[in-house]
Every structure is written in C-alpha cells, then in structure tokens.
Design a protein around this nucleic acid. Structure first.
Lengths: 210, 210
DNA sequence: GCAAATTTTGACCGATTGGACAAACGTTAG
DNA sequence: CTAACGTTTGTCCAATCGGTCAAAATTTGC
C-alpha cells in the first residue's frame, strides 16, 4: 500500500528521507522544465529511484508539485514577514531589497518554480495568492503607509512599491540567462549581483527620499 | 507536398492567410501553456483547422514556435530602439517606461511567451540574446552613459537600469494573476496600469535625478 | 472547361507518458 | 525465528502526442 493511501499513520524514517530526496529532485527538474515539461521518470532518475518506487511516496505527479510549491511559499515570503517598523524605514526597505536579491542569487530554482506557476495562471496556488499573500501585502502596505504619514519616505502606492521590488530582484533569477547574455562573459560570470544590489539600492534610496 | 518542403516557391494567398491564422492561434496557446504544455491539436483547434492541415503549413511544432518568437522579437524591442538622445534624457526615459508598460498592457501574450522561453533557458533564442539584444543594450547603455557624463541623470549602471525597467514593466503582464490577486477585485479590475505608471514614473524620476 | 497544382481530411503509427498492480524483497518488533 | 509491515521492482496499460501518408476535395492557370 502506498504512503498516501494509509490513513494517517506516522511517517517512517525511510519515508521522511525519501520524500525529501524526491522533493529536492523535483525542485531541480520542475524549475528547469516547468510542470508539463517534466516527467516522473526524470524526477525519479534525479532522485536515484525507479518510477514505481517514486509513485509509492507520491501517488500523483501533481502531488509532488503542490507539496513543493506550498512548502516553498513560506520561505519565499519570509523576507517580507521580516519587514516591520521597529527600525529606520529606509534601512528596513534596503534590508528587504538586499534579502530578496540574495534569495534570487541563492535560490534561483525556487524563484523559477514560482514564476512558472504564476505564468501558467497560478492554477494550483490561486487560493494562496488571494488569501495569505494578499493579507501579508495588505499588512505590510499599511506599515509602509505609516512611514509615509510620518514623512520618513516619499508618498507612493506601497503595493506597487512591493511589486517593483519583487520584479527587480526576482528578475535576476528568472531571467538569468538573458542577464548573462546581455552582460557578456566578463560581468555575467559573477559580481553581477553586487552590481545589481548597488544599482537597486541607489534607485530606491533616491527614489523614495521624502 | 507541404508548404515547407517546396523549395522557395512564392507564398500563395491562402498560405499567407492560413499561416497568420496559425501564428495568432499559436500565440494564444503557447503563451498560456508554454511550449511543452501546448499541443498541436490545441493550436489547430484554436485556428479552426485539423491537425494534419496545420502541419501542412508548419511541418513541426517547433517551427511554429520559432517563427512566432523571432517575429515578436522585433516588435518587442521596438521601444528600446526608439530610445535616443535627441530629446531631454528624463523625458526619453519616462517615455520608454510608459511605452514598455503599454506593451505589457496591450500585448501580455507576447510578454508571457518570451518569459516562458527565457525561464526554460532560452534554448531557441540564445543566439538572438547574445547577438542582437546584447548589441542593442550596449548601444543604448552608451547613450545613457552620455547623459550621465553631461550631468543630466544620476550616475548608475545603465544596463541594470534597463534590466529594472524591463522587470518592473513586464511584471504586470507576466505576473498578472498575482498582481490581480493581491490588489483585489476593486483595483485589480482596471486602472492598475495607471497606478503602476504613476508609481514607476515617480520612482525613476526621483531615483535618477542627478 | 480542364489539367495541374494546391489544400484538406481521415486513418494510421511509433514513442512517450502518467499511473496501476501484483509479486518479490527488506525490515522490524515480539 | 517469524509474522506483519514497509519498500522496491518489472510488467503492463490506456491515453496522449507529434508526425506521416495517401487519397479526396478544392483552387488556380490557361
């Protein structure tokens, strides 16, 4: 009997290990080829097991994907959660941009996985977007609006500010090949994230000065 | 004999019309599901013809895709071509941002098609990126650098400036469902492009002030 | 109007894919 | 040791997909 069918039996050590192995392999494959572009065989091979064996731990291809994307959602939104009004507003925002850019650098697969899902119309995470994500953005937008009322940063639409930070930082993960191609072999090799950080820091520092 | 196999016979009226019909249908399907996520049957149905009939005009699925993406590349880069140093630098940049945002609003399918291709590693347009695109960006980066030397705009890396404009504007096409979900039914319905234009205009106007 | 060329269609094919299943193999607790 | 449970594998299947092909239907040039 497969793992999924057993009703609420606690997970075995092997089950925990193998499921992690599969999810790691699936992240690699899904982020590179998208959902439909990936096959169970590819994931199974990347995880070092046979296809029926993989299907013993996840009954359907889609189960792997949804498990993966729901889990990643938390880590992906962590930087925004950290944004609060304890420190200096400009420092807070700069820190947020820096953390988002670091995530694009260190977790490009996660970024591309999300981008792919959103591009396809987000069929599997629409409820998450309308629920948790919207609530989080609304909450943080209110924090930012407070900064504006206090005259700490320039007045603007805080939600579009958040969008622009998402867009500019994730661009370096999602459009990596384009960035590399345009920058050429010299600056595309490395250090492009430092350049990006410098540029974005300046843009937002000056652009949001009250 | 199929259209592709005949050696350089001029295109019939029907061939021109039907090929356009197919490319329009393919844009619709490919932009929604990506290359591997789309089937010839889907495209054929969207174009109102049978699969073998479609394959009479394009011998392979990939031929449709490459024809489509190469043709779109021109219109997609047109706004950047228009960026030159005849007018006031700030006005030029603001116009570029506005045009890019209008393209995201009016041609979201094209934007998503490109995004999808880049996300998959740009296997079919890598040469274009390293060739035409890089050359164009290099050229325009030099124009922008000239503005900086003249003290017209703040000094920064012009290529990352271009990246950020691409990212922020195309975000409203590629991540449309996310933007709508976060903004909610009220502002997601319409007018979000005006809000975005206002925000971006302010961000870049202030952020690039010399 | 007719022959040649073009266009359309239905039937078909091999490869791939997601998934089912039962049997074999391993592991572990008593 | 052994019985129960967990894990792995080989085999198989139906559906889908990209693409072929020959024949039928239509259009075009003269």
């Amino acid at each position: 009997m497969s793992v999924g069918t057993r009703a609420h039996r606690p997970r075995t050590r092997i089950q925990r290990e193998k499921r992690e192995l599969i999810l790691e392999a699936a992240l690699e494959v899904f982020s590179a080829h998208g959902f439909r572009g990936s096959t169970i065989d590819q994931i199974a091979e990347a995880a070092g097991m046979s296809k029926p064996n993989l299907l013993y731990y996840f009954r359907r291809k889609e189960d792997i994907f949804t498990t993966l994307i729901h889990r990643l959602m938390e880590t992906w939104l962590a930087p925004l959660h950290e944004l609060d009004n304890v420190g200096d507003p400009m420092t807070e925002l700069r820190g947020y941009i820096r953390r988002k850019l670091e995530m694009a650098r260190d977790y490009p697969r996660e970024s591309r996985l999300f981008a792919n899902e959103i591009l396809q119309g987000a069929p599997r995470i629409m409820l998450l977007l309308e629920g948790e994500l919207k609530a989080l953005v609304d909450e943080k937008a209110e924090v930012i609006r407070g900064w504006m009322r206090d005259g700490k940063i320039a007045r603007c639409d805080p939600r579009h500010l958040i969008f622009s930070i998402w867009a500019t930082t994730q661009h370096y993960a999602d459009f990596d090949v384009q960035v590399r191609a345009v920058l050429g072999p010299d600056r595309g090799g490395d250090g492009r994230f430092e350049d990006a950080a410098r540029f974005l820091e300046q843009l937002y520092l000056e652009g949001l000065r009250p």
